[in-house]
Amino acid sequence: MNTDKRSTVMRYLLLTWVALLFVFPVVFMVVSSLKPDMQLLQDSASFRAFLPVGDISLDNYSNAWDRVPIGRFVINSVVVTAITVILSLFLCSMAAFSFVFLEFRGKAVLLSVILATLIVPFETIAIPLLMVVNNLPWIGFDGFQMGWLDSYQVQIIPWVADGLTIFLFIQYFKDLPRELVEAARVDGASWFQVFYKIIVPLAGPCFATAAILKFLVMYNQYLWPLMTTQSEDYRPVMVGLQYFFQLDIAWGEIMAYLSIITVPVLAFYLSMQRAFIASIASTGVKG
């Protein structure tokens, strides 16, 4: 009993130590957002960096709000991110299902090609991609036009499908029992029904993981929107960060801005965590 208690205490100690290691820059960020620039820079060399002491106020927040249309940018980011994540989960998991459970001609080649795209860092193909989207047509509310610049779709559609998400689903689906699929087929279910009635419900943790990873990639988009958005109507949050790098860098405002734009991500992650917990429970029952 006693050793048990001690080991529990040890566990929490370890957890807390690691937690401190991970959380300190975030605390630094939030605490700094409350301080005037001069104090922020002086404090950054000592443990005062983590303490909300001295001349504390919300001035940085109101100044940041005046400098950047934060509301607009957050909405843009959330719209782009949400649509991309939803489309991506649907299309990539379906493709992965096809790669794992179905046999079709050319599958091996197609899969290899898709996985090979994992190797290509986006930065190295950004300019050719720009050339591609410049030559694509779009039919929107205001009629037909060539080129996708300065829009939501240019930030969404090229990012919907990616090798990593498909790969993630493939590796997960491989671990699922094939008998379930066979049984459903014998019962006369179509392949699509097998996919969304049997596989999707079983893959909760994988969907949650894929959603989180995709969310992060999309919410933190920087280079691509920089190249493709020209008006504040479509600009996302990371481009807004650049507004603060004037000759006198407004560090306090930067910290305030970063603190604000981090909130949606944390909220999303926490909601996904619930999905995690739920799926742990469900695998427990089925396992």
């Binding site: 493709a95 898709i114 795209t117 559609i157 919907v160 499908a161």
Partner: peptide, 14 residues
């Protein structure tokens, strides 16, 4: 089932 995602990857990555 594989085509929607694959064609997007081909167009925007490959």
């Amino acid at each position: 089932m594989a085509l929607p995602a694959s064609s997007l990857i081909i167009l925007f990555l490959i």
